[in-house]
């Protein structure tokens, strides 16, 4: 399904409340129908971005355009954005049906069409039988789906989701992740999904915008963020990463004393990221980097190790190839494929 509307453009945006700006975005375009995750730790400005898009915060400078129309000064109720809150914010004094009708009544949709759209929306989220319940009578996952249906029933140009999965338990969260993705595919509404959970962001999105300290750290597809992080922060926040310094050896650059082949030149002082799942733990031998097992844990398909190398660097490893379980304090060797080393920028 292709969306014909809902293209969001953000230009020269700066938001601050007197002191330091809490969010600065030079340029960010969200294509019509795209699912964009805004990922970052708490305080990175992601919730502020959502408030700006929904119209609850007017930026200090900059413009927000939806389908080419400048909405920077448009009040929240005239923006035609659908907002889903972390706490769901379902009206407790209204039934599920009245909650869904709310946005249609404000738009003066006639009763016949209203009934039909509410019915469709409830069917979409699989809650057709719950129309006359009150929110308190629903489970967390059901409330979540009502909240999404309530936002979608108004046919917003952009759907804004504020950590909508964070109040659900782990199992339900994983299930809702898929449902959310399928739902978005089905309706094709441009979606901005704010989260601090990198696994959610990677699993759901067409693209991920990584924010840190109010700035855009990196923007790209989930694969790009995972495979070619540009900064230490990106490498560490999206998936775990061991950050290792590159030294200049006799025969070229080395990492943990092992010679490595890296594209380019001039690696002295540079840092590479090595993901735990790409570290191979082997029996100690001359070729592998020597290390000691500090602790080992069983994580289902693989073991997770915490290791210390001879020069005192501590790192995590969760090798994919099962192998045998190395005991604590056991000397081991570490190897990796050279293309698993991700060179990072100077940051």
């Amino acid at each position: 399904m292709t969306a014909t509307q809902g293209r969001v453009e953000i230009r020269g945006l700066s938001v601050g409340y007197g002191g330091e700006p809490v969010l600065e975005l030079d340029e960010l375009t969200i294509e019509a129908g795209e699912f964009l995750s805004v990922l970052g730790p708490s305080g990175c400005g992601k919730s502020t971005l959502l408030s700006v898009l929904a119209g609850f915060v007017t930026p200090t400078t900059g413009t927000v355009l939806i389908d080419g129309e400048d909405v920077t000064d448009v009040a929240p109720n005239r923006r035609e954005t659908g907002l889903v809150f972390q706490s769901y914010a379902l009206f407790p004094h209204m039934t599920v049906r009245r909650n869904l009708e709310y946005g249609l009544r404000t738009r003066r949709v006639a009763k016949a069409e209203r009934d039909e759209r509410v019915r469709d929306a409830l069917r979409l989220v699989d809650l057709a039988d719950f129309a006359d319940r009150y929110p308190q009578q629903l489970s967390g996952g059901q409330q979540q789906r009502v909240a999404i249906a309530r936002a979608l029933v108004t046919r917003p140009r952009v759907l804004l989701l504020d950590e909508p999965l964070s109040n659900l338990d782990a199992k339900l969260r994983r299930q809702m992740r898929h449902e959310l993705r399928e739902l978005q595919r089905e309706v094709g509404t441009t979606t901005v999904f704010v989260t601090h959970d990198q696994a959610e962001a990677l699993a759901l999105s067409d693209r991920v915008a990584l924010l840190a300290h109010g700035d855009l750290e990196q923007l790209g597809t989930p694969e790009e963020l995972y495979r070619t992080p540009r900064t230490r922060f990106a490498a560490d926040f999206v998936g775990a990463a061991n950050l290792l310094p590159v030294h200049d050896g006799d025969g070229g650059p080395t990492v943990l004393g092992r010679p490595v082949r890296l594209a380019g030149s001039g690696f002295a002082g540079a840092t590479v990221a090595l993901r735990p799942e790409h570290v191979r733990v082997v029996e100690a031998d001359g070729d592998a980097a020597p290390a000691t097992v500090l602790s080992v844990g069983f994580a289902g398909e693989r073991y997770e190790y915490r290791l210390r190398t001879e020069d005192g660097t501590e790192l995590l490893a969760s090798p994919a190839d099962g192998g045998r379980r190395f005991a604590e304090d056991e000397p081991v060797g570490l190897t990796w494929a050279d293309d698993a080393l991700l060179p990072l920028g100077a940051a």
Binding site: P76, N77, T81, S87, A89, Y102, T106
Partner: peptide
């Protein structure tokens, strides 16, 4: 009052007055 509720009403298209009368006052 949960401040998210009036915000939800606004994002669903209700004017400030309508929000006050249909969400805030009943709550």
């Amino acid at each position: 009052l949960d401040p998210a509720l009036p915000r939800a009403a606004r994002s669903l298209g209700a004017s400030p007055l309508r929000t006050f009368l249909t969400v805030t006052v009943p709550l």
